[in-house]
Design a protein around this nucleic acid. Sequence first.
DNA 1: AAGCGTTTTAAACTTACGTTTTAATTTGAT
DNA 2: ATCAAATTAAAACGTAAGTTTAAAACGCTT
Lengths: 228, 228
Amino acid sequence: MMDKATQLLNPMKVQDDMEVNKPDTATRILDVAERLFVEHGFEATSLRMITQQAEVNLAAVNYHFGSKDALFESVFMRRIGPFVAACLAELDALEQSGQALTAEALVLTFIKPCLMLSKDPTKGGALFVRLMSRTLVENHRLLREALNQQYSVFVQRYSSAFQAALPQFETEDIAWRMHFAFGVMFNAFAGNDVLKIFVRSQVVSARDPDMVVKHLVPFVVAGLTAPV
Amino acid sequence: MMDKATQLLNPMKVQDDMEVNKPDTATRILDVAERLFVEHGFEATSLRMITQQAEVNLAAVNYHFGSKDALFESVFMRRIGPFVAACLAELDALEQSGQALTAEALVLTFIKPCLMLSKDPTKGGALFVRLMSRTLVENHRLLREALNQQYSVFVQRYSSAFQAALPQFETEDIAWRMHFAFGVMFNAFAGNDVLKIFVRSQVVSARDPDMVVKHLVPFVVAGLTAPV
DNA sequence: AAGCGTTTTAAACTTACGTTTTAATTTGAT
DNA sequence: ATCAAATTAAAACGTAAGTTTAAAACGCTT
């Protein structure tokens, strides 16, 4: 038995799908698990639910990924790397373009990758944003440590960029505003709406990513650049 | 056997605590369950964890509340009513004070009750804000329906108030801004920080409610009043 | 002190979970 | 075509979950 998880992190179709257009076992598991983890959460999603919907044997999860915990990690890691890379690429492009480093431009370097995820035709990307918001509150210890080591550069880069874009503010103020700004952006793309706790579907078009962006950008930019 | 859950929704100490300062069985269960549901989530919290820490018999949960689901509902309902009432009271006071109906004043009618919860010496209130943010993503169907019926007035009142305070914006714009504003406020008080997925404790003092408010209000007000 | 509804207790029950095992099957290189 | 490796499959394992039961203990009224 070999651990196929790492191999899957670099998604490449080595061989074409045999009969129908069915991805291989591990990919089917990842796709179904991603959706179910988002819908029901980690604990409430059983391996039997996953394997039944993925039309694979129950033991396939433990064979390909080792454990349910490791499966979750694989589900998450499959998306987080490309997403962070996309944000950093946007940051690089902005910094080297010679454009003015405004708060709005910085916000867009984050929003554009979010928008791409939200428009993922396979819907996997759209689920990932919601998965992140669930992961945030579910607080997986193992995952936290792995992400801290690999992707702390994400925060570092954005911190530096925002300090350059907003030189009139102190470091601590910028940290707070980034905290709020990324929070509201993530929640917006995840479709989280506190008000829908109290009343059904207040913002009906909140699932249209373009509408989200249209209203989100002015809100976040205003918050980021507000006078202290 | 009688269902004591409804009785507990109106918290009143019928008899004083007998020997030490120990609340009765149902209250001890509610307190412990509240904390564990926040820490680990609904599914990952077992009745045995709850009853052991509450120092009550395992069967006490089903006796007093009927089921684990009903216990969660009781945990939530114990706090949501007083919280909504506090917000509406602040709204009433503002509208009858003759002060100008500004976005900032409206934001404060929501923040002041949040602040009171966050400073609850028993810590139960602080937990409740986090419980709401978990509930938001965990999406309990039964709870959703119950809240929709009882507390839709919450959104209605704030919608009217914000439309009065921001007459220059269309109804849909205001809905979007409220969506973002309440989202960032809830997350702020719940201590949710997306950036801490990537790096440890970016905003270290994010757990001091006064500091949260200090930075949160300018951010939210700016977002709410930003030009379209 | 007796009686009675309420509460607590200990134990068992059923079910579902993640995981493991073992064998069968498929795959790919020689 | 063969054989070793990789994968799939079926079944069982041990555990822990929510719930139920029935008896014991308690608290209050009479």
